[in-house]
Design a protein around this nucleic acid. Structure first.
Lengths: 329, 329
DNA sequence: AAATGTTGCGGAACCGGTTCCGCAACACAA
DNA sequence: TTGTGTTGCGGAACCGGTTCCGCAACATTT
């Protein structure tokens, strides 16, 4: 079954290629020919060759999505949202994974440009000068999710505000001896903004805060939990920068026989689904990853359409108050 | 910065387009011209236009991957494995999500064929005649993961054997009153094979088994757990068809004040990472999703290369004996 | 009736590669 | 020296679309 080409259609219908092309792209075509082409195309199941189209137009109906990892809850949910919306609008999502290597983000920016994607959605972790350089060089709309930069359209989570809100709640509940388990400052949103939001709330209440640093990996957080178990008497609350970290810390604490929230409270951040079904369920901040993905797709489509899009857009957040954090009596 | 074309290169180097093309594709080129082209191409940063290439060759360096959902642990890990290997070998992964709609799987088979992907890796849930029809029609190598069909190269998990092995372990430990929480038979691997493997082991030991059906969603499993809590005295073990179901059941039990494994044992299946860090940690079967993804990429590459690949390949499995299942005293 | 404007359509060039074919230059054997 | 075989290279056609240009037929205005 070889490919039916526009030339075949033209011959069968007894017209020129150009007429068929015009018919397909809404040019001026007479009633009689239109009807004939209608029929011929239906009967032959003709589908235009996308390469030939792209070769001429230097464009595709693809949106590149750069993700730091494929196996993260946030990335998965965001991709779902993006895909949903893009599919509706006749675009396709082309996911590229950078396996957490910054260098590959930059490579992929250029690479996607070479592939002539219509736009790029970038789930950022850290933004460097070289990123910005690449973005400016490729001349393709780029939308940054999760981080922010003045030169790039950004869709960001209110990390600072959410952390502040949750932190305030905790101090209202009487927590004064707190450990904050964070990640590297290289990640502005998570490493800095979340931490600073919490710190602001905690300092306002005069709480005592200890800072500990770990990575995004669950395994690395387990020893942190075990370590914290030793100094458990002097702390009432452990705030974790992500739900995964909270999970690891909880495990570490459990390994040492510490009970949550009886002996100490623990909170997370991110709002992964499973935090609700754990026992104890985890107090956390829910970030709307999926909806943000969908929103980013909308914004990208607007950018492509030439509409005006604000350089910086915030998403909402929602506190999830659950069992793992207790009030101080 | 407009695209440098092969014609530009030819003109700068003072040769014909065809010579440049031959140079690029390893044809016969003289030493002097080779050196000249070497230099010109390096200096101009020339990159061939992929559309023009594909237009002629009717092929791309893309492998389509059809997944039922983007936010599943198994799918994410498998995609990671696929992507790793494909990237190494100069191919790209093109993920398409069917949002669990069988109809869209078939659509996407045709669609990917239209896009001239070199091959398709399909994370299957159910295999129908229409799937097979599509696969035969498109004339592109297809590799099925997780399900099996005689007409399609399949890479399958040993669901039956693993379930049998785990079930046997449970009966050795003395469990005789068991509830099996499964899913619809539409999914052969999960809905039938896993169940049947467990049933074989349980029946061999003369155990009494109650079958309950739910879906793949955590939320749906919670009420199941709550319901089971009522009949807890007559059951010593609840076997769940997936780790997610186990998670939901555990939550349902916890809601009713049932303690695991003291009051009842619970097991999962799949071996998601987080099952290890929960408290209690969940006894389950680990399936090597990521490695399977990598393996599937290897097999696909072999298929493309024309090598012989067995129609059916099994992966390994590994029992993860942990806290959530106790021996009967 | 002549002048002008529309509309529908065909021809040809173009997008940027690959490949087939044939010719010229050269090396080597007879 | 002539004949045969390689090797390197250029020209042209081709992949399957889109688009520009111009012509012919018809409609409209004066």
């Amino acid at each position: 079954m070889k490919q039916v080409t526009i030339k075949d259609i033209a011959e069968i219908a007894g017209v020129a290629k150009s007429t068929v092309s015009r018919y397909l792209n809404g040019g001026s075509v007479g009633k009689a020919t239109r009807e004939k082409l209608d029929r011929v195309i239906r009967e032959t199941n003709y589908e235009p060759n996308q390469f030939a189209q792209s070769l001429k137009s230097k464009q595709t109906k693809m949106i590149g999505v750069i993700v730091p990892r494929l196996d993260s809850y946030a990335a998965s949910r965001t991709m779902m949202g993006i895909d949903e919306r893009l599919t509706e609008r006749g675009y396709q999502m082309l996911v590229v994974n950078t396996a957490q290597q910054t260098e590959r983000e930059i490579e992929q920016l250029y690479n996607l440009a070479k592939q002539k994607v219509a736009g790029i959605i970038w789930l950022g972790t850290t933004v460097t000068e070289r990123h910005i350089e690449a973005i400016e060089a490729i001349q393709i709309p780029v939308l940054l999710i999760g981080q922010q930069h003045d030169n790039v359209h950004s869709l960001v989570y209110p990390d600072y505000e959410a952390a502040y809100a949750l932190g305030t709640r905790f101090t209202e509940w009487g927590h004064r001896n707190v450990v904050y388990v964070g990640v590297s400052e290289v990640d502005i949103a998570v490493g800095q903004n979340r931490r600073d939001g919490f710190l602001k709330a905690l300092h306002e209440a005069g709480a005592h805060v200890n800072l500990v640093q770990t990575t995004f990996k669950i395994e690395d957080a387990i020893p942190v939990g075990e370590q914290l178990a030793k100094e458990i008497d002097s702390t009432s609350l452990i705030i974790c920068a992500t739900d995964n970290i909270a999970l690891g810390v909880l495990k570490g604490l459990a390994n040492q026989g510490i009970s949550v929230p009886n002996d100490v409270s623990v909170s997370g951040f991110g709002g992964y689904d499973f935090t609700e079904v754990l026992h104890p369920s985890i107090t956390t901040v829910h970030l709307p990853y999926r909806r943000t993905g969908a929103k980013s797709a909308d914004m990208m489509l607007q950018l492509l359409h030439g509409d005006d899009v604000p350089m910086k857009t915030f998403t909402i957040f929602e506190l999830k108050v659950r069992e793992s954090v207790d009030k101080i009596k």
